[in-house]
Amino acid sequence: MDNPLVSIITPSFQQASFIQETIQSVLSQDYPALEHIVVDGGSTDGTVAILQKYEFYGNKFRWVSEKDRGQSHALNKGLAMARGEIIGWLNSDDTYEPHAVSRAVQALQSNPNWGVVYGDGNYIDAHSAFLRSYPVRPFGLERLYRACIICQPAAFIRREVFEKVGPFDESLQFCMDYDMWMRICKHYEFGYMDVVLANSRIHAGSKSITKYVDIGLPEVFRASIKNFGSVSNMWLLEWISFHLHLEPALIVQSLKQMNAIDDISESSLYQLLADDPVAIIDWLEEHRKTAPKWT
């Protein structure tokens, strides 16, 4: 088979501590038809000097550094620059495992009905040491509704998918990947590979640490309601677990404002939070039978 061009897009901002390792993990792949596109948001921390060192790769490595409107906007700029038939998205603090790209391409070529293929992933720390496995699961609509089961850097997407479903939602700062998976699965099959393809880095400055509760979870609620019509019990429990220090009335009010509990009794939830918040898991499973619905 021919080797289709693969475009790896890396959105970046102030990641000089990690971006060189990210670039090396791309350019050291054994797949021959590859281009790496870094879309930097105007970093002032030494990132640009690092990017300049790789200009000798010519068209295999291209970059731009200018003010943008955030990560989703940077991804869309990268999509516009990309020439490949297959798209990968690797954040500027994440890394690929060896052979990741060639394995993904082989899987897509062997399964022409797949719009997306993804593999397993690991969490690593600031020093690239293994922390734990990412909670990846084989694809299922119900599984995706309940939680984000796809490790974003371990996913590879056919270009035609973006032509069908459109670009990343630039109103999202955190869960643009989860929103995209939900949009794609309405039209295309997902394939899963039981092999580690990428590493997702957790460090003091990562969004997974700094923005998960205040921005991430509300965005998950919004994306879930937009795509599936409701929020899963698992996501509700996740949000509640971070807010048990609040008064029950404020918890209920906040969930109502996010349109997350339109289908359950506010008074019953309030009473449970006031009396026995530990029992909320069983209560939700008994009283709230949710399922994904296309919207």
Rank of each mutant, 00 (worst) to 15 (best):
F168C: 03
T44R: 08
S72A: 15
E97T: 11
V195T: 09
H73Q: 11
S230N: 15
Y54P: 04
D125C: 06
K53N: 10
E66A: 15
F174V: 08
G84T: 14
F174G: 00
P135H: 07
L255V: 01
S92N: 14
D275R: 15
G119N: 12
Y118T: 07
N91M: 12
L197E: 07
F162R: 03
M182I: 01
I23A: 07
H187L: 07
N111L: 09
G84I: 04
P135M: 03
Q106S: 15
G41D: 12
N227W: 05
G140N: 14
Q71E: 13
G41F: 02
D125P: 03
N199D: 12
F13Q: 06
Y192E: 05
A198F: 03
D194V: 01
I50Y: 05
D276Y: 11
N111R: 08
I280V: 15
C151N: 10
N122H: 13
G140E: 07
Y134D: 02
R132K: 07
V195W: 06
G121P: 05
E85F: 02
S102K: 14
Y270C: 12
M176E: 06
I280K: 06
S17T: 11
R159F: 07
D40A: 09
Q20P: 00
H187Y: 13
E142P: 00
A291P: 00
N59F: 10
H73T: 08
S28P: 00
D94G: 14
T22A: 03
M180H: 03
E66H: 13
Y134C: 03
Y192K: 01
S7E: 11
Y212N: 06
N111D: 14
L141S: 10
A204W: 02
S110I: 01
L236C: 05
A279H: 09
P4V: 12
A74N: 13
I19K: 00
S232D: 06
I209H: 08
D2W: 05
C175R: 04
L27N: 00
N113G: 14
I240K: 03
I280M: 15
E163H: 06
D179P: 04
A291L: 12
K293P: 00
Y145M: 05
K77F: 13
I251D: 07
H187G: 04
G41M: 02
H203W: 12
T44S: 13
A198I: 09
G70F: 05
E247V: 08
L246G: 00
R158I: 06
A33T: 06
F139T: 04
G88I: 11
F228N: 13
A204I: 06
V116Y: 10
T295S: 11
K164W: 04
L27E: 03
V26T: 02
